[in-house]
Structure formats: structure tokens, C-alpha cells
């Protein structure tokens, strides 16, 4: 019974749907404020029903499968992408008592499940039999390979610091001191996160002005909805990962609980939007140079810093 509740409602389907609808609306409103526009306005209070209506519209529209593609690959990929994007939430300690799958290897599961996602998106672009989609897919792969080294090394630093891969233990042992020690790792994680989520300035795979809509180009209707849903579920997985690993999870200043967790995720979404409003897109070459020349060596240095800090600052902890 509790498992059913977990799958359908709390860290499961309904939770992700609500998150997608609300965060989409929030992005549009926040972006509009940064652009000095109004944003969604007419439906509901401050236009908040707009995304709900948009998604309903997408679900009722025809889902076109172009001729010449492999229909199984083409239609399977959105479902698979959405499912895999939702899986990491099973390992996240949302509240002190809610972890669906309590495991000793939470960090590993999180990192691997986040890492698979771009590959599925590449396959969806590859299966579309369209030049724009294919190029978008290739760009995703290139970006993934470049950004993941930094991402993984940054994500593993809290595990090194606390000497455990258990997300629950990491959350519990987080303190102000460990937060300060982990700030460089958090910055690296955040930059790699932008590349992994294809957000500006690294929105190279769906660069509208170059390759129309990247791997999304051929998708419509329900399939497009599923891909968008996967994207937002992926946002949640990555934010939640950052919150647990670096920001102390559900711990708050006054009270612990899910609200603190949510506020931290929202804060990261806002920072991401602010970066989006402040930067133009970099090119592929610049992105690769940034990651391999600067971020990967820096993340290795960061590991060394974590080791030093563990020995000299937090000597008695682990």
C-alpha cells in the first residue's frame, strides 16, 4: 500500500506532474519578469492554468510519426526517457522518513541514472531520421561526454568527505562547516548541471537559431509532452541531487522538512533562470574547451581539496 502511494503520488507520477506544470509556469513568469514582459496572464490567477491547458492540449493532439523512421524506437524513447528521469527520486531522502529505496549506494544510483538520460535523448534524435534531430543528438552526446566528468567528480566529493555513499547519512552529517568546504564542488556541479540539462549558456543541442529544435524537431502531441516531462523530471532529479549532496537536503534553519527541500530546489531553479537571462549561447568548441581545459582539472583539484579538508578540518568525522 505504501509502495503504491510512493509510485503514484508522493515521489512518483503525480508529484512529477505537478512539479512539471508548476515549474513550467514559474519559469515562464520568472523569465518574463527578467525580460520586462508580462508572461502568461489570462487563464487563472497570474496565468497559472496556462501550462496545465498547454499540456492538456498536447495530450489531445495527434502524435505524428514521420514516415521512414523506426516507429518503435521513435515512440519508445519518450516513454523511456520520462521513466528513467523519474527513477532517481526513489533514492532521494525527501523528508527524514521518506526514502522509497533506502540503500547504501544512493550517490552511485543518482549519478548513473542522471548520466543515462542524455543518451536516451540522443537515441530519440537518432531515431527521428531528420538532420536537425540527428545533429541535436550528436551535440547532446558531445556535451554529455564533456560535462559528465566534471559532474561526477563534483558529485562524488561529498561522498568522499563523509566517507559514505548513503544519501540519508550524507544529509544527516551535513553541517555549516561541510557546506563551506563543499562550495567549490557545488559551483562545479552547478556549471556541469547547466550543460547536462542543456540550459543556457549550454543550450547547444536545441539551439533554435541553428538546428531548429534539436532532437525535439520531429516530435509532436503526446510524445512531445513526454519529452518535456522527462526534461522537467530531469531538472528535479538534478536539483534534488544538488540539494542532498551540497545543501543539506531537508535540513532547514528553524524546522526540518520537505518545505526546506523544496525551497532549496526552487532557489536553484531561479539561479538557473537568472543565468539564462544573462548569457548568450557558447559554441560547441568553446564548450568543449571550457570543460576539458578548465573544469576537469579544477574538479580534480577539488578532490584534493576535499581530502585535505577531511584530514585537517573535519579530522574526527569519518
Amino acid at each position: 500500500m505504501e509502495l503504491l502511494f510512493n509510485i503514484t503520488i508522493f515521489p512518483g507520477m503525480l508529484y512529477f506532474l505537478a512539479w512539471t506544470v508548476l515549474l513550467f509556469w514559474f519559469f515562464r513568469k520568472f523569465m518574463a519578469a527578467l525580460h520586462k514582459r508580462v508572461g502568461p496572464h489570462f487563464n487563472g490567477p497570474a496565468g497559472s492554468y496556462q501550462t496545465l491547458f498547454d499540456f492538456t492540449k498536447l495530450l489531445t493532439k495527434e502524435s505524428v510519426t514521420p514516415s521512414g523512421v523506426n516507429p518503435y524506437l521513435f515512440s519508445l524513447m519518450p516513454i523511456l526517457a520520462a521513466l528513467i528521469a523519474m527513477l532517481p527520486s526513489a533514492f532521494i531522502p525527501w523528508t527524514p522518513s521518506t526514502t522509497v529505496v533506502p540503500t547504501e549506494y544512493g550517490v552511485l544510483a543518482l549519478v548513473v541514472l542522471i548520466g543515462i538520460e542524455p543518451f536516451l535523448l540522443f537515441l530519440s534524435g537518432f531515431g527521428s531520421d531528420n538532420k536537425y534531430s540527428f545533429l541535436g543528438g550528436i551535440r547532446i552526446l558531445t556535451q554529455m561526454i564533456s560535462s559528465e566528468t566534471a559532474f561526477f567528480l563534483a558529485a562524488l566529493s561529498p561522498a568522499l568527505l563523509f566517507g559514505t555513499l548513503n544519501l540519508q547519512t550524507i544529509t544527516e552529517s551535513a553541517s555549516w562547516l561541510s557546506f563551506v568546504v563543499l562550495i567549490p564542488a557545488f559551483v562545479l556541479y552547478f556549471i556541469a548541471l547547466l550543460a547536462l540539462l542543456e540550459q543556457p549558456p549550454f543550450n547547444i543541442p536545441d539551439a533554435e537559431q541553428e538546428i531548429v529544435y534539436g532532437f525535439y524537431t520531429e516530435y509532436s502531441g503526446t510524445n512531445y509532452f513526454l519529452l518535456k516531462f522527462a526534461e522537467f523530471a530531469e531538472f528535479m532529479a538534478v536539483y534534488a541531487g544538488a540539494t542532498v549532496l551540497f545543501l543539506g537536503g531537508y535540513k532547514g534553519l528553524l524546522v526540518d522538512g520537505y518545505l526546506c527541500f523544496f525551497l532549496k530546489m526552487l532557489l536553484m531553479a531561479m539561479v538557473m533562470m537568472a543565468i539564462r537571462a544573462a548569457t548568450p549561447r557558447v559554441t560547441m568548441k568553446q564548450m568543449i574547451r571550457l570543460f576539458w581545459q578548465y573544469l576537469v582539472p579544477l574538479s580534480l583539484l577539488n578532490i584534493a581539496w576535499i581530502m585535505l579538508a577531511k584530514i585537517y578540518l573535519l579530522g574526527g568525522m569519518a
Partner: peptide, 16 residues
């Protein structure tokens, strides 16, 4: 030019 560089905020500012 700024929109084609992927800088939509600048586009909005200049158009405004």
C-alpha cells in the same frame, strides 16, 4: 544579432 547568438534577454531589452 543578439537573439541569433542565443541571448534572448538582450533581444527583449533592445526591442523594448
Amino acid at each position: 544579432v543578439s537573439e541569433n547568438a542565443g541571448y534572448e534577454a538582450m533581444f527583449m531589452r533592445i526591442m523594448g
